[in-house]
Amino acid sequence: MSKVIEINKLNKIYTETAVPVHAVNDLSLSFEQGEFAAIVGPSGCGKTTLLNLIGGLDKPTDGKIWIDGTDITTFSIGQLTDLRLWNIGFVFQAYNLIPVLTARENVEFIMELQHKSKAERRARAEELLVAVGLADRMDVRPSRMSGGQQQRVAVARALASKPKFILADEPTANLDSSSTETLLNIMEELNGKEGTTFIFSTHDSRVMKKARRIITLEDGKVLTDNII
């Protein structure tokens, strides 16, 4: 399988704090196409920082990240924005949907940023919303949905742009057991169907059970990396 992400000797030191924080410490990793991986570890171990660096939301202090063979650590802000738009899907802990748009419009929005045609946007949005079990909630705004439903819309939105991989930062942290189970099953199914790489940061044992690879971080370093 081809490597989607390759990380080499990555460091991130936050110097804005009174004492500099070495959030990611000389970390090297790689992810292949179609992986369903969880990054775990205690709070402050660097999970979110690592996801932000992979997603181009933050710049490393040192080290390299290659996405599909291209070094993104030298990218400008504009290039990183384009990279995220075309290659990366995001699922956030707090869902972060656009509250004034319906589920369908939320999913379509990212495709509009990609200048896809209206017909293409609509077809893809409907396909994904059906896939996440929200066929009957397409024209409902987020405020009228449960947390689980909103997170499913967020997954559909993340997949809408046909990204190479999805970064999900504690996606189940705000969900009850039933919603978590449903969401994980959907993501697992879409991972198989669409072949998109999923990388989670999580504390949730239910996510870890579903993951096929578990990377444990401690003090910004890879403690263990197990393929299950």
């Binding site: 939301l57 384009d82 956030f92 972060n96 940023l113």
Partner: peptide
């Protein structure tokens, strides 16, 4: 702030 962060994270450029 959170919403603008999300929009920029998912690929909405600063101009937009």
């Amino acid at each position: 702030v959170k919403e603008f962060g999300m929009l920029m994270a998912i690929g909405m450029n600063r101009r937009r």
